[in-house]
Design a protein around this nucleic acid. Structure first.
Lengths: 150, 150
DNA sequence: GTAGATAGTTTAGGCGCTCAATTATCTTGT
DNA sequence: ACAAGATAATTGAGCGCCTAAACTATCTAC
């Protein structure tokens, strides 16, 4: 059997391969913003939130990663002068993240880039089809996670 | 806007997040085989091919990666005693990869693991739906790649 | 007030990737 | 026939994101 045939019969292989390529392409697409992919997600998330409501823990939950990773990411964004920390008035363990002007500008560039990409999707792929595919992939994700316990 | 809402409206974010989680789950699922994910793909690909027809370049093309990565991967598999190299009779630059007995056993374990996972998919997701989703994700992949040039 | 939970940081290490330099071999043009 | 270029594979440095665990600081509850 050809390797290609083997790949096509195995959904996880196909999905993994597609995602690795998408990841690489997104990284290249975001190069002009000077941000890595996760940094871009973080900073544009803050842009969309009510100012002063975003905490590292919230970001870690949202992006299904650890506080450790988010901590590195925030440190990098802070070193670039894109955001600032602000200690919570009620709980001194908690930080709120705020975009600096440069950070807001950068986040808007990220959003524009992602929106432009999404518009090219919409030209070629019916929105319902894309939503359905994402829903299916989410189901796959859940089944993979469930497969851990068995 | 809530971060969750922002994520749900952005397909690339959703896809990326799902991919990362699937990747982590697969890595854990393959832990008993003693192989990393790409190693598992490589070794099970060789299992499905006609013996003595698989070259590093073919693998690199199939998995959309570079010969460099495949080279590291093969070196690791060889160090584990799972496969052997055989110089091509007609072109001394080319190696053919052959599974050793331990490698065949290991590859079969990988295939069984992936098949078991796939069977849980089939129980919950209609095959046509899964195929359709993968086709859509491939379209997304191609649009991302095309977006590089513009 | 002490014990435990929680928010966040830090460190060590791993995988898969890119990119570039290198060696060996084949192929092509003159 | 021989030099020049293409190709197969290896190697090494470095990066992004990840895990896992140890750590500090703060809050909460008995």
């Amino acid at each position: 059997m050809r390797i290609d045939a083997y790949l096509q019969q195995s959904p996880v292989c196909e999905i993994n391969r597609a995602f690795r390529r998408i990841d690489q392409d997104l990284t290249r697409l975001l190069l002009p913003t000077g941000l890595h992919f996760v940094e871009a997600l973080v900073i544009s998330s803050i842009l969309f939130e009510e100012p002063g409501t975003v905490t590292p823990s919230l970001l870690a939950d949202t992006f299904a990663t650890t506080r450790g990773n988010i901590s590195h990411c925030i440190a990098s964004l802070e070193a670039k002068g894109l955001l600032s920390r602000q200690v919570d008035a009620e709980d001194a363990r908690v930080f709120h993240l705020r975009l600096k002007p440069a950070g807001r500008k950068c986040a808007m560039q990220v959003v524009r880039t992602l929106d432009r990409l999404q518009r090219t999707f919409e030209k070629r792929i019916a929105p319902a089809e894309l939503r359905g595919a994402i829903r299916t992939i989410r189901a796959v994700e859940e089944l993979c996670a469930a497969g851990q316990s068995s």
